[in-house]
């Protein structure tokens, strides 16, 4: 279980983006998170994945503190893939940085062999996004924070990406936190949905009080 307990985060001396936020994500569970721009969804995602250090609060991955180095069991999939790859590496090196995905998986994610020899600037945003998602699925990864990963994709590619991701997540029992503005998409993907506003998570009425 990925759990966050009473997270607090503020930028400079402004009001806190996250104020006493607690959240848990079980292995194999899909949780949806929405909220307005600037509500702190990405900040929460980055905290969970260890890209940011919480100013207060505790994050535990399967009961232990996240490792300081090496492969991180929580991976953040960012909204802008072009900012999360080395522009001077070819796609093959980017994709295989942490592990070597099988050809079948590459096909499932619609990554064409012809892309591997190119530089990231020669791929479109959606093409690169699929490379980044597959890159993050190394064995040892337990949880994914999918931060608006399909917002730049057309409906068909979006569908294909989620179907491929769902299959891998089901096989390996990955927990997935889906951050999106698209209520219809979250409804399709996630049985449990949360809304972040004014620094607090509000749990949906039907499900128990998982979060503060």
């Amino acid at each position: 279980m990925l759990s966050a307990y009473r997270l607090h985060h503020a930028f400079a001396d402004q009001t806190a983006v996250l104020d006493n936020v607690s959240l848990s994500l079980e292995a194999g569970e899909w949780v949806g998170l929405n909220g307005l721009s600037g509500a702190g969804k990405s900040t929460l995602g980055q905290l969970l994945a260890g890209h940011l250090t919480p100013q207060a609060g505790v994050i535990k991955v399967d009961g232990a503190a996240p490792p300081r180095s090496g492969l991180q069991p929580v991976q953040w999939l960012p909204q802008s893939p072009e900012l999360s790859v080395n522009p001077r590496w070819r796609v093959k090196r980017i994709l295989e940085e942490a592990w070597t995905p099988s050809t079948a998986l590459r096909e499932a994610f619609g990554i064409e062999p012809g892309w591997l020899n190119r530089y990231p600037s020669a791929l479109s945003g959606g093409e690169l996004q699929r490379v980044c998602v597959l890159r993050a699925l190394a064995p040892g990864v337990r949880y994914l924070i999918a931060d608006e990963i399909s917002s730049m994709l057309d409906p068909l590619t979006q569908l294909a990406l989620w179907q491929a991701l769902r299959q891998v997540a089901d096989e390996r029992r990955l927990g997935v936190l889906v951050i999106s503005h698209d209520a219809a998409l979250l409804e399709r993907l996630c049985p449990r949905r949360l809304t972040l506003s004014e620094g607090r998570l509000s749990p949906p009425a039907r499900h128990g009080a998982q979060s503060a």
Binding site: G35, L36, H181
Partner: peptide, 11 residues
């Protein structure tokens, strides 16, 4: 792509 990544109100 003027509406990418915006919340519904902003979009």
């Amino acid at each position: 792509e003027p509406s990418v990544g915006l919340d519904p109100q902003q979009r």
